[in-house]
Design a protein around this nucleic acid. Structure first.
Length: 641
DNA sequence: CCAGTATCCCTTTTT
DNA sequence: GGGATACTGG
């Protein structure tokens, strides 16, 4: 067969082998910067070029953006057929399948995806209803309960194991927590809710309990590719197995050294287990690094070499030159920020565009001081990760109105809406919710139920809104506008900082314009919530042109820049205090440091203050991150100012 | 039954 | 230094 794309020319031997091995199970161990995305892209193109029906290829990635980008690139390599490849995240894939087979999966059509905040609210309701909670001196709070439930689900462990291992101080409450977990699951069914974990577990259950249906679904996908396999959890691995076991045309790509999502149940051991699940797996390692200069690789190799458990690999490059990474000690937080600002100005004057520079940190709030200094210096920046806009109160308030329109059974959202109103508390909200669900009259039914005069007065405007929306089949955007208009006075009364929040709502309205279907809109914002901001207001559409990038390390996965600054490279912050007493957690912090430092092409800085009082732990921090402190001068230049 | 006040808690990363 | 929860008065 003659191929249009000159694969041999454009790929190195290992990459080429990965691309042309299209049959059978394939495991690619891809070191940082080894052209993993390139390999996946060419492989998609190759399959399509071989005549495989594009939608028979399933490309599962970590974010939707990643799959879109790959398919876009594949399209420009070959042709537009590549854009018809089925791609997305595990969660969005599960969402799509489950919406097609709700009954088989055991719930009503038109389910609502609930985020962490909603899930905690529901748990809070259960907790409040329980008379047993007050019998204990301490009982886990709703967010702790959510953590316990989540861990049990994602790691496929019984509740009691999770409590015994991670929450021994709550051991005597085990029985009640287990009871609440059951209650949580049945209430989700009652209100037609699926939380993030449910998307995966329900899909898994659907496939495993329904062999024929599983076969129907599996037979659609002749070729499966999974990116970032090190960050999948056990359930995801099982789903993949069910989808791929018949044809066995499955390729997974990952790097165990870059596994950074154990906190939500991911396990890099999936990589180790893959060849056992699929006997005859061909393993290919990509070890040539095309990203960083050798001095940076020398350092990153050292960081990861000390890891307890890994597939061994050693990255090398043929890139010449480069300078040694720098560890810089500054006296306090603000001098850390000022140093970064000064260096950025220098780089910019030397012709490095701002969008080729990034500042990385462990947690979203670590950049606050720096953001102030950047604003003072008039350096434009965009921040990625950390804060969750979709979970901020004003956004959730507006969305709640849309959610009850879509699913009138959504008790959490009804509560949220009703409690915004004067004289309405939990009890009244309960009554209203019950009469609406009993009569099954939807949101427009709010005006049909009998209320006390006082309550009727408080709900008057809301009734109007729902009647208006219910009678005229409005577009998503129009509904949104109606609700925002209704909500704005409430917002102004509730928050002193309302101008900023109104701006957020305008951005939300802009997103809504792109949708003609409410269900799709609600699912999308839950599954791929916007996580970028400019000037502290969230931004869905932006160009990174000439903007500095501030990002959490988790959100920097897969990206690269000319220069990378890692701030707060401070013991107790990075690694975080939370990880200090668990060797496993500490290993994850190490991998996180590895991910952060392998983002740099030419220049890499670690910065830390030498004196910092940490309010939360009451500790005084000052030592550099233990992952880099022990590195010799030969590898890391140490300076202080 | 709501709303306002005192107290306690914790505080990472994300689909 | 803030949010969530428990408590208390109207």
């Amino acid at each position: 067969m003659n191929f249009k794309i000159p694969y041999e020319k454009e790929l190195n031997p290992s990459q080429l082998e990965a691309v042309i091995t299209t049959k059978g199970p394939l495991l690619i161990i891809a070191g940082a910067g080894s052209g993993k995305t390139r390999t996946l892209t060419y492989r998609v193109a190759r399959l399509v070029e071989q005549g495989v029906e594009p939608n028979a290829i399933l490309l599962l990635t970590f974010t939707r953006k990643a799959s879109q980008e790959m398919l876009h690139r594949a399209s420009s390599l070959l042709d537009n057929r590549c854009s018809r490849v089925s791609g997305g995240t595990f969660h969005s894939f599960a969402n799509a399948i489950l919406r097609n087979y709700p009954e088989e999966a055991g719930f009503k059509p038109g389910f609502t995806i609930i985020d962490r905040v909603d899930s905690e609210s529901l748990i809070g309701m259960i907790r409040k209803d329980s008379k047993l909670v007050s019998k204990f001196h301490t009982f886990p709070r709703k967010n702790t309960l959510a953590n316990i439930f989540g861990k049990a689900t994602n790691k496929i462990l019984p509740i009691e194991d999770v409590i015994a291992k991670d929450y021994p101080h709550f051991f005597i409450t085990t029985e009640i927590i287990t009871q609440m977990y059951k209650e949580y699951n049945s209430r989700k069914i009652e209100h037609n809710f699926l939380d993030y974990d449910d998307l995966l577990t329900h899909l898994h259950r659907l496939l495993s309990k329904n062999p024929e249906l599983c076969q129907t679904i599996a037979s659609r996908y002749h070729y499966i590719m999974v990116d970032e396999y090190q960050d999948t959890n056990k359930i995801q691995a099982r789903i993949l197995y069910l989808l791929a076991e018949a044809r066995r045309n499955i390729m997974v790509v990952g790097d165990d050294s870059q596994s950074i999502y154990a906190f939500r149940g991911a396990s890099f051991k999936n990589i180790m287990a893959f060849p056992q699940k699929f006997p005859g797996t061909k393993i290919i390692k990509l070890e040539e690094n095309y990203r960083s200069v050798q001095p940076i690789l020398n350092l990153t190799n050292q960081i990861i070499e000390r890891a307890a458990e890994k597939y061994s690999k050693l990255l090398f490059t043929s890139k010449e030159g480069g300078v040694k990474p720098v560890l810089l000690s500054t006296d306090n937080e603000n001098s850390q920020s000022c140093f970064v600002v000064r260096e950025i100005k220098k780089l910019y004057e030397n012709g490095i565009p701002l969008n080729q520079i990034s500042i990385l940190f462990r947690a979203g709030f670590h950049s606050f001081d720096l953001e102030v200094e950047l604003s003072k210096a008039k350096i434009p920046f965009i921040k990625v990760g950390g804060f969750k806009f979709m979970e901020s109160a004003h956004i959730k308030d507006v969305i709640a109105h849309l959610k009850v329109i879509h699913n009138p059974n959504d008790k959490v959202s009804w509560y949220r809406i009703l409690l915004l109103l004067d004289t309405i508390g939990p009890k009244t909200a309960d009554k209203i919710f019950n009469s609406i669900t009993e009569k099954n009259i939807g949101t427009a039914g709010l005006s049909k139920i009998t209320l006390k005069p006082k309550t009727a007065k408080s709900t008057a405007r809301l009734k109007e809104v729902f009647t208006q929306i219910g009678s005229s089949r409005q577009s998503v955007c129009l509904m949104g506008e109606t609700i925002i208009k209704y909500y704005t006075p409430i917002l102004e009364k509730k928050y002193d900082d309302y101008p900023k929040r109104i701006k957020d709502l305008e951005h939300l309205a802009a997103i809504m314009e792109r949708y003609d279907n409410l269900e799709t809109f609600l699912a999308d914002i839950s599954l791929e919530p916007p996580n970028t901001s400019i000037d502290n207001t969230f931004t869905a559409d932006y160009s990174e042109n000439d903007r500095l990038i501030l990002s959490t390390i988790h959100s920097a996965k897969g990206l690269e820049w000319h220069t990378v600054f890692i701030i707060w490279a401070l013991d107790g912050r990075f690694p975080s205090v939370h990880a200090l007493n668990s060797p496993e957690d500490l290993e994850e912090e190490r991998r996180l440091m590895y991910v952060a430092s392998t983002r740099a092409r030419e220049k890499l800085f670690f910065i830390h203050p030498t004196y910092f009082y940490d309010r939360s732990s009451g500790m005084i921090l000052g030592a550099p991150s233990s992952f880099i402190d022990m590195l010799p001068e030969k590898i890391l230049k140490k300076k202080s100012i």
